[in-house]
Simulated assay, not measured.
Amino acid sequence: MHSLQKFLLLIALFSSTVAFGQLTADPEDRREQGKDPLRTQTPEGRPLPFSQRLRFGGGINNLRFGNPFSIGVSPVIAYQTTERLLLGVGGTYAYTRYKAISNTGATVPFQTYNQYGGRVFAMYEFIPSILPNLYLHGEVENSSISVRNDQSGATGNYSLTAPLLGLTYSQPISGRFGINLTALYNLNYNQNQAVAQAIYGSPLVIRLSFF
């Protein structure tokens, strides 16, 4: 587990470094001609090479304070398939500390959750002439969760699959980098499932990411 955490941290650091480097490197920028930058072509109309269609980044997710307390990171690699379609993959790590509420007044120990997972997603800019940079967003996230009872030391392992649908608004900073605000609905959320309640909190998932 420790090696996986280090690996995810290295991916996040690498992605962030590349993403910030893209802030000043935008060879497709056509703003000087009063036009929007092209995402898959050069200004002369030639297809961009594979490497120039890639977007690297990530974000902080599962951020909650109180009970539960939760924080996570999610590195992302995305590919600009067409001018309007973006496909991507990402990793996920989240730490959660949660204390269930007892109806009987009995003392309930804290539990620690370590979530490791991956996701695939698609974003489609569906009404660019009316609301540019607004995307339909669909993804599937699969997670493995290790749960530890802080009092007894007992552990358990679970898995969750979450199909998510919603919208992303992307504010471009360069041709291959933007700030993204995402609101998704978890179609597989079960409020009676303790692990899902601790990890997601509700069927609504809000994310802020950079890629």
Rank of each mutant, 00 (worst) to 15 (best):
T112F: 10
F65G: 01
P68D: 10
I71N: 01
A94W: 04
G72W: 12
Y95M: 08
F65N: 06
Y98T: 08
Q80T: 01
A94M: 04
V89I: 14
I77C: 05
L85W: 04
G88I: 02
T107K: 13
Y79E: 02
G90T: 01
G105V: 11
R84H: 13
S74L: 12
K99C: 06
V76S: 04
G91N: 05
R84S: 05
N67W: 11
I71L: 14
G91A: 13
R84L: 10
T81F: 15
A100M: 05
S74I: 11
Y98D: 15
F65Y: 13
I101M: 08
V108C: 07
N67T: 05
Q115R: 15
R64N: 09
T96K: 10
I77S: 01
Q115M: 14
A100Y: 07
A94G: 02
F69E: 02
A100F: 12
Q111L: 10
S70Y: 11
I101P: 00
S102T: 07
S102I: 03
V73S: 07
A100Q: 09
N103Q: 13
L86D: 03
G66P: 05
Y79N: 00
R64E: 09
S70N: 11
G88V: 01
N114A: 07
F69N: 04
I77H: 00
V89N: 05
T92L: 15
T112Y: 12
Q80W: 09
Q115N: 13
P75G: 09
T82H: 03
Y98A: 12
G66F: 12
G90Q: 08
V108L: 14
Y93V: 08
A100N: 05
G91W: 09
T104K: 14
Y95A: 06
S70G: 07
G90C: 04
L85K: 00
Q115F: 12
G66R: 03
F110R: 08
L86N: 11
I71H: 02
A78L: 01
N114G: 07
T82C: 01
